[in-house]
Design a protein around this nucleic acid. Structure first.
Lengths: 190, 190
DNA sequence: ACCTGAACACCGTTCAAGT
DNA sequence: ACCTGAACACCGTTCAAGT
């Protein structure tokens, strides 16, 4: 067997291809921050100094690019949540997790709409987040702190709702906590 | 004073203009049903047999058109809710109202994303809906059935969340009631 | 294997000319 | 007052040619 086989199917990129991938990702971060998540892909390619075809070859759909561009941040978030976990009770960790995800969705305009898709993209970062979220949910449910008929998809739903609401009225910090409170209030067992 | 002055500012359309307006609205309904709420406006103009400029003159933004296209349906919905109200207790009427709105948002693909904006557009139908919703909410709050710190905007938020979730996984009827249950569970006082 | 960019089809929006 | 449609600027996506 070979030396490096990450998980399974991962055709190891040729050196120049790998470099281009990084350039695209960096450009995407820049452009999305500036113009929003629905910015022109041609602009991204332009800024990465790469042919538009190269971008499409690596990221066939816009969502693929969006997911990849958010990978590292999601990875870090999952990690943070894990270290935070010990200090908080089950319900509180879940809340913190949701609030963090909402913050993440606010990283640039237009991300909120796709946050559900991004969270289902299969990226390492997204998988780490899902696992962490599911673990927190199960823990809270076993502790009797959250209703048993609630799924992780329901949580994603809450995150999307809050993110979208916050994005639309450009609301202040306060509205986030209020909405999380309202939505999670129904999930937590009284 | 004149004979017909609807409410206030309403520059009475010239006959041909009014007719064009109707044609555009009818075409929009058709096209949105077929292609989704993000369909091409040129296609709408084409189908209405009207110059694209005419469409823009009457509906400067896509959201204007979307709101106008949903006016009648929202009007009917508010009316239905009012007649239903007597038969249900405060919490149940609120739930029924939310479920109806979600159904409305499912009328065509892509409407869910804009349902919040549509509900704030100032169209007669949208105003009727807002009024009805606010009345139901207040009633439920006075009856002690729903938390007092919940606003109508929060309700719109719930509607958006559920609609989007349902639209994304093309979920069955069951998921709607589940999500409404989860979200409103937190709003109703236990 | 990978990169490039021209080519194609399409869209949103404006505005001068016309009734 | 209103309508029309050409004109402009832009975008997504594909694919033949090139390394």
């Amino acid at each position: 067997m070979k030396a490096t086989s990450p998980l399974r199917k991962a055709p190891p990129l040729r050196a120049d291809a790998a470099r281009n991938r990084e350039r695209i990702l960096a450009a995407a971060e820049e452009v999305f921050l500036e113009l929003g998540a629905d910015a022109s892909l041609e602009e991204v390619a332009r800024r990465a100094e790469v042919g538009i075809g190269t971008l499409y070859r690596r990221f066939p759909t816009r969502e693929d690019l969006l997911a990849a561009a958010n990978n590292e941040r999601l990875l870090a978030m999952a990690e943070d949540s894990r270290t935070r976990e010990a200090a908080l009770d089950p319900a509180a960790s879940m809340r913190a997790f949701v609030v963090e995800l909402v913050h993440h969705a606010r990283h640039y305009r237009g991300l909120a709409t796709s946050i559900g898709a991004v969270l289902h993209s299969g990226t390492p970062g997204c998988d780490a987040c899902s696992e962490e979220g599911k673990r927190l949910l199960e823990r809270a449910q076993k502790a009797g702190a959250i209703r048993k008929d609630v799924s992780f998809d329901d949580i994603v739903c809450v995150v999307t709702a809050v993110s979208l609401a916050v994005e639309q009225d450009a609301s202040p910090q306060a509205r986030i906590t209020h909405l999380v409170d309202v939505f999670l209030g129904g999930i937590e067992t009284h």
